[in-house]
Design a protein around this nucleic acid. Structure first.
Lengths: 168, 168
DNA sequence: GTGCTACTTCAAGTCGACTTGAGGTCAAGT
DNA sequence: ACTTGACCTCAAGTCGACTTGAAGTAGCAC
């Protein structure tokens, strides 16, 4: 048999064996059997792990990733969902671009205090205005909320209006 | 006095009051005093909160952000650190770009199974090869590791070689 | 002076993705 | 046969950034 030992899979995939057990528990991967106690894996698991890793960095949760695998194990990918995620990612990329520029500017700006630098303040305002949002407990690329359309409304309110405790 | 009540700050900054208390506890913000029990804040706290939000989305932890405020409360920003963070962000942005393209392709690709699509497999390989890494418990933009340079070495090994349990 | 209510404190809980530890098992080498 | 050592299971712990809940308090309207 060409099956791989869990240690071998761990080595090749660059993840600890404990993670493989965890993934198995979550239904993300499956072992082909045991040799003694030890899990054996089909080499194809490496591809699957790569897919999982990719999904993770794209901002999917393990549960979401699990759902993109059809019952038969083949990746049954919801194209609409992918497109949606791609858009979220795209938005996030642009946000981070603004941030990166802000950081670069702040690093180069000669103003003694950054708060006195108009450019920095402008970037700060942009960041605060909701153009940039911080994902709530989620991996990197994940977007936060649909960012409901706001008109040129109340400039005193920044960020997400849904999370207010006392709207009175 | 023009000080703001905690509820007002919460409303304007778009964060729950509990978060403000938490930030105060962590030393990120300070109240100017109390009216009765209630915290009062200088309006400048809004700017500071914006700064904090920006730092968060740039991938700083709250502790790191706290350090970028000098004891006197003025943002004393380490330019070198900013430049470093900007670079990390830049790298992350490029990674996410690859991911986004992968997702878009997968969404558009007519191949019945994505695993049979050469383009998808190529992107997958790129993702698995370490070109894209998933930040370990860290907010969005944070980079993971310096990604030590690898030559055209063993193509069977993917990801981070330092996290192996059983190197035997 | 009595409520109402939004605040207060402090401890504990939550979430996701794993990791760690204790105690046990088994294939292989000597 | 015995030892070794990497695997096994299962429960519990970790990390960061908050949130939640219980129990208490003070400003303001009446």
């Amino acid at each position: 048999m060409t099956d791989l030992d869990i240690a071998e899979v761990a080595r090749r995939a660059g993840v600890p064996a404990s993670t493989l057990r965890y993934y198995e528990e979550k239904g993300l991967i499956a072992s082909t059997g045991r040799r003694g106690l030890r899990r054996q894996y089909d080499p194809g698991v490496l591809e699957r792990l790569a897919l999982i890793a990719m999904g993770r960095t794209a901002g999917f949760s393990l549960d979401e990733i699990a759902h993109t695998f059809a019952p038969d194990g083949q990746p049954r990918i919801d194209r609409q969902m992918l497109a949606t995620k791609a858009e979220e990612l795209d938005r996030r990329i642009r946000e981070l671009g603004v941030l990166r520029d802000s950081l670069r500017h702040a690093a180069a700006c000669p103003a003694p205090s950054h708060m006195e630098c108009p450019t920095f303040r402008r970037l700060l305002a942009a960041a605060a205005s909701g153009a940039v949002a911080v994902p709530r407990r989620r991996v990197p690329g994940a977007a936060v909320k649909p960012l409901v359309g706001e008109g040129p409304s109340d400039p005193t309110r920044i960020q997400d209006p849904t999370r207010i405790q006392d709207p009175a």
